[in-house]
Simulated assay, not measured.
Amino acid sequence: MSPPLLDIRHIYLEPGVEAYARGQEILARFPDAQRTEVRSHQNIPGLHGNAGLVKEWVRIKRQVLVLGVRKTFALRENGRSADWIAPGLANGCALACAYCYVPRHKGFANPITTFVNTGDALRALRRHAEKLGPKPEPNQVDPERWVYDIGENSDLSVDALLSGNVRDLVALYRELPNAKASFATKYVNRDLLGYDPAGKTRVRFSLMPQRVARVLDVRTSPMRERIAAIGDFVEAGYEVHLNFSPVVIYEGWTADYTELLREVRDAVPERARRQLAAEVIFLTHNEALHEVNLGWHPRAERLLWRPEWQEAKRSQYGGQNLRYRYGFKGKAVARFTELLARELPECPVRYAF
């Protein structure tokens, strides 16, 4: 039997966490966990920036939890996966996908950080939506409503194992007439089927061929389980899209994606297939993450780090990224969208790059 996804044994918490009902709720779930008060969730001595912990990458994700109080609630315009990126109620993840960009900003340990001042976030999101008013015209994100990505830096299906934050977010957008929520996930949490989203939350199930997912999507739900959940989530009132991100190029990738798309076509009920749409994002890797991965999962880098197909590009944050070469990538994007149109014609592409 595989170990549980979460087995919280050590909780780092900022001052004031216990003053919030959500903080009390989470602490009560793990009464035997060691507690250490820290000044900031963003810089925990001995945890963040400790290169010696890279070998403990997965153990820390399973056993460590950070609780904080979010200080700012700024929103960012997006235009791709959503109209707006919402201030998240969590950061970091118990999953261990080898390509995830979040660890680049957190040093050598990336457990879940959960924010307990849920009410502050909900009020900020409500004010923002009310100020926007009706969406003036359709766009590729959504034809009718403003869409808020509520899970940019975490996986909300996993966050829902810890607290009621995700349920509260789904309830908020159920009430907002001009807005809907959206989040991508690689984990099937069937408790979400009881949240009554009323069509106002979009779940984007991330898919990739299982052969490479076994290497790259560490600690996630198997692809077959994700595909099987699509119809159930549609029946429960969610809008469900497909998130092909990242698309990783390797020898035989098109044959593997053809098989994956046929599995979706055969396993997903017609009603659910008719409401699908897809976003397609090819891999962007990072030099710093490459070094981290070499410390705990070098096998993944044989898929992710392919300099013969990649070119360097300086990120907006100053890091050294590797993306598939211009021209090479364009042909790959065209090939993928052709495959999708052929094998799953009910599923339009919202954007691909």
Rank of each mutant, 00 (worst) to 15 (best):
Gly133Arg: 00
Asn91Glu: 13
Gly46Ile: 02
Leu172Ala: 02
Asn117Ile: 08
Trp84Val: 09
Ala198Leu: 07
Arg80Gln: 13
Glu144Asp: 10
Lys180Met: 10
Val158Met: 01
Pro134Ile: 01
Gly330Arg: 09
Gln24Ala: 10
Pro345Tyr: 05
Val292Leu: 12
Val17Cys: 03
Leu304Pro: 10
Ser154Arg: 02
Leu161Asn: 06
Thr220Gln: 04
Gln316Cys: 06
Phe282Ala: 01
Arg342Asn: 06
Pro307Trp: 08
Pro143Val: 00
Gly52Asn: 04
Tyr195Trp: 11
Pro307Asp: 02
Pro4Arg: 01
Glu14Ser: 00
Val234Ser: 03
Arg126Met: 04
Ala228Tyr: 09
Ser154Val: 07
Gln140Gly: 11
Arg325Tyr: 09
Pro45Ala: 00
Asp168Lys: 07
Tyr99His: 14
Gly318Tyr: 06
Ala352Pro: 12
Lys180Asn: 09
Arg174Gly: 07
Ile11Ser: 02
Lys200Glu: 04
Asn243Met: 06
Gln320Lys: 12
Pro45Arg: 01
Ile112Glu: 02
Met208Ala: 15
Tyr238Trp: 05
Tyr99Ile: 09
Val69Phe: 06
Val212His: 05
Glu14Cys: 00
Arg29Cys: 02
Asp32Leu: 00
Ala98Met: 12
Lys106Thr: 15
Lys61His: 10
His105Trp: 13
Gln210Gly: 12
Arg22Asp: 11
Gly252Thr: 11
Leu172Tyr: 08
Arg314His: 07
Gly107Lys: 03
Glu130Cys: 08
Pro31His: 04
Tyr351Leu: 05
Ala229Leu: 06
Glu270Pro: 15
Arg80Asn: 14
Gly23Met: 03
Glu291Val: 14
Val69Arg: 08
Pro136His: 02
Arg29Pro: 04
Thr118Glu: 08
Leu89Ala: 01
Leu289Gln: 15
Leu132Ala: 09
Pro111Trp: 13
Val17Gly: 01
Tyr12Phe: 11
Ser245Val: 15
Leu193Asn: 00
Pro177Phe: 00
Glu144Ser: 05
Ile85Gln: 11
Lys131Arg: 15
Val102Tyr: 11
Glu251Asn: 11
Asp159His: 10
Ile150Val: 07
Arg104Thr: 14
Leu162Tyr: 14
